[in-house]
Design a protein around this nucleic acid. Sequence first.
RNA 1: GCUACAAGCCAGGCUAUCGUCCCGAUGAAAAUCGGGGAGGAAAGUCCGGACAGCACAGAGCAAAUGUACCGGUGAAGAGCCGGGUCCCGGUUGCAAAAUACCGGGAACAGAUAGUGCCACAGAAAAUAACUGUCCCGUCAAAAGCGGGAUGAGGGUGAAAACGUGGGGUAAGAGCCCACGGCGGUUGCUAGUAAUAGUAAUGGCGGGUAAACCUUGCAUGCUGAAAUGCCACAUAUAGUAUCGAUUGAGGGCGGCUCGUCCGAGAUCCGCCGAAAGGCGGACACGGUACAGGGUAGGCAGAUUGAUCCUGAUAGGUAACUACCGGGACAGAUAAAUGAUAGCCCACGACAGAAUCCGGCUUACCGGCUUGUAGCUUUU
RNA 2: UGGGGGUUCGCCAAGUGGUAAGGCACCGGGUUUUGGUCCCGGCAUUCAGGGGUUCGAAUCCCUUACCCCCAG
Length: 126
Amino acid sequence: MTKRFTIGKNERLKSRKAIDLLFREGKRFTISPFRVFYCETGQVELLAGVGVGTKNFKKAVDRNRIKRQAREAWRLQKGQLKEQLIQNGKGLHVFFIFTEKSLPAYEQVFEAITIIIGKLKKLVEK
RNA sequence: GCUACAAGCCAGGCUAUCGUCCCGAUGAAAAUCGGGGAGGAAAGUCCGGACAGCACAGAGCAAAUGUACCGGUGAAGAGCCGGGUCCCGGUUGCAAAAUACCGGGAACAGAUAGUGCCACAGAAAAUAACUGUCCCGUCAAAAGCGGGAUGAGGGUGAAAACGUGGGGUAAGAGCCCACGGCGGUUGCUAGUAAUAGUAAUGGCGGGUAAACCUUGCAUGCUGAAAUGCCACAUAUAGUAUCGAUUGAGGGCGGCUCGUCCGAGAUCCGCCGAAAGGCGGACACGGUACAGGGUAGGCAGAUUGAUCCUGAUAGGUAACUACCGGGACAGAUAAAUGAUAGCCCACGACAGAAUCCGGCUUACCGGCUUGUAGCUUUU
RNA sequence: UGGGGGUUCGCCAAGUGGUAAGGCACCGGGUUUUGGUCCCGGCAUUCAGGGGUUCGAAUCCCUUACCCCCAG
């Protein structure tokens, strides 16, 4: 119960192969600053990753900041989605890509992740 | 105390909760506990290395690229320190082009090795020609014409054939002389040297080498996604060629020696009377090509020419030697974040990816030291 | 990580040391009853920014900024 807000090594999308597969064959949708790729898997797991393009943000500091904000928002809100997956016996790979060109506020990112998780929950339910 | 400049240092702090990467301990595991976790520029990639692979395992020449006052320093450099020469600015002073002091700058080898270029203007942009001046001839004389001498007088221009004065001459010219300027050669003195001073000698034919170039020196090429190992995986593995001697010729970073490959010939086997023709298999190993598979892990890889600091010694200094103390992240889709509170100067530029030494650029503000100026007090 | 190229008027661009071509667009005038077409004229004081070499830089050199491309 206390370890719900984690984002450790085994909860991140790490394999290059899995990411390539996700981009090639996964489904996708766009919600304000993010484009989301997702793909259901057989094992019970929930892996996530974040990316920011060099084209929109030239400075590494800005890219790191957005990735950290997105990861923080995901960490705090993914609990319910994971419980649902465990109940249904499904797994899910998710990848976020930031598409805006200006630096966002943290609240903006947090709200966007809330909406995305709501949508993912509906998709899992089907 | 204030202002300006230069150099160096710091780069918000603390507490709580949640979260993250690495290391250690406990544990069968899950996990828990403890410790550590971006910079002065981590950046640009402008230089120099370390390290690794390939080539050569050699020598010489050429090309290409870079570089260029001298000495030192350092692993090395286009870095740093010191010195020289030239240029610019300031101060003192009646006066500072050359001379005193202070500060700043310099891609400061060569223009008498050669080639090219120098718009417009100007007679002419480097060799002359044109115009002019003077002499002679022609002619009664002048002009004109012809022959000869001469070289800066010719409005320009960024730049005009060492400058000024005198002599000299038919007219002139460094043609000669005096003073001054510039650079060459030789000698002496000082200095490690660049160079400076001085004497003699023989000159004074613009600029541009960040135009080509010449001279000296340096450099093999490619970069950690390099590279090595293990596991998985095709495949009881496809094609070509090699694993005897000589050798036209060809390749090896361009060339030569050198070295490697090599049609053909020789050799062996078969056919054939001979000439000649065909073949040198399989297996194993090497090389090249085609196709297929894998794309996980470990090493490289984070302590090294290390950095900071104190004392001593050497040195003008950069720096060096030695002794003592302290510090140093290590991921592999990639770690430092979020929330709340308090304090203050209200927080800039900005995020490691193989590692070091420099340079350059970005930067809110604060502190220290030095120099100069102004003001106050003694 | 390593390498290559570019930046000239509002847009497309030429210009390889000597007054910065040209087209489109724009502005003014003419022709026409009006508009279009056509004709004439105008439009770069800073050639991405800074510094240097040169008598003289868009051009040569150094440096900074931005943009594009390539290899794996």
